[in-house]
Amino acid sequence: MIGRMRSQTEEASKFIVDWMEHRTGIVTQLEHFLYEPVPKRGAWVYTLGSAVLGLIVVQFLTGILLLFYYVPSTDHAWNSVNYIMNEAYFGQLVRGIHYWSANFLLAMIGLHMAQVFFAGGYKAPRELNWVVGVVLLLLVIGLAFTGYLLRWDQDGFWASVVGMKIGSYSPFVGGYVINFLLGGDVAGPATLSRFFALHVWLLPAAIAPFIGIHLYLLRRHGVFGSEFEYSERLAKLHERQRLEEYAGYELDDDDEDEAERNGRSNGRGE
């Protein structure tokens, strides 16, 4: 009885897998994705990048959740955040995760960048992935800046005022920059709407494809950590080179020396 059920389930699952594979090719894709060989040494170092990815996903999820209650208007933005914090079930947790994972995200990005820089991970053929990474960094900084104002509390408001005023010092375009950010010439409803649009729609929409490119390029060229992953192979290479060098000396002991000397003197003569 159990044996028959087992075989039936097996057949059914095999059928589903085959069916999906035939229609979408997803099974092969998954195999490629899951079973790619990656360096065994330094695996903990490479969790930095995945941590960044995970935290960004958390940002997306909790951000969408917060939008269920948040009201982007100067009259009610603060009130709605207050409601999330005090009234909504687990509101404190959802907003807390959004807030704290943003902080961890910035820290993790810093560590991730430092690791890639000091390991030389930006070298050919991975230059473009570094460039995409810098774009992602700028987008995340933009998100961090625009998100701060949305609470419409003293902290967020004044930090944004300072930030916008910094923008106003841009050479040649300062006046345009600040009026663009303000949505006019005073910090008011238009400013909040703008920051909301940037934080919730424009920047996340921009960041998503760049994350995709970053991951695609990573998979295309593989992670490159540091020379310590290759220490055995490098040792073998150096050993072989050394042996070849010795072999060279031993083989052409006299003749080569003679030829070399002649060559040199010829060279000098010319």
Binding site: L34, Y35, P37, V38, P39, K40, R41, Y230, R233
Partner: peptide, 9 residues
């Protein structure tokens, strides 16, 4: 290829 590899999963 690094000295030692493992499956991603």
């Amino acid at each position: 290829r690094p000295d030692e590899t493992m499956g991603f999963f």
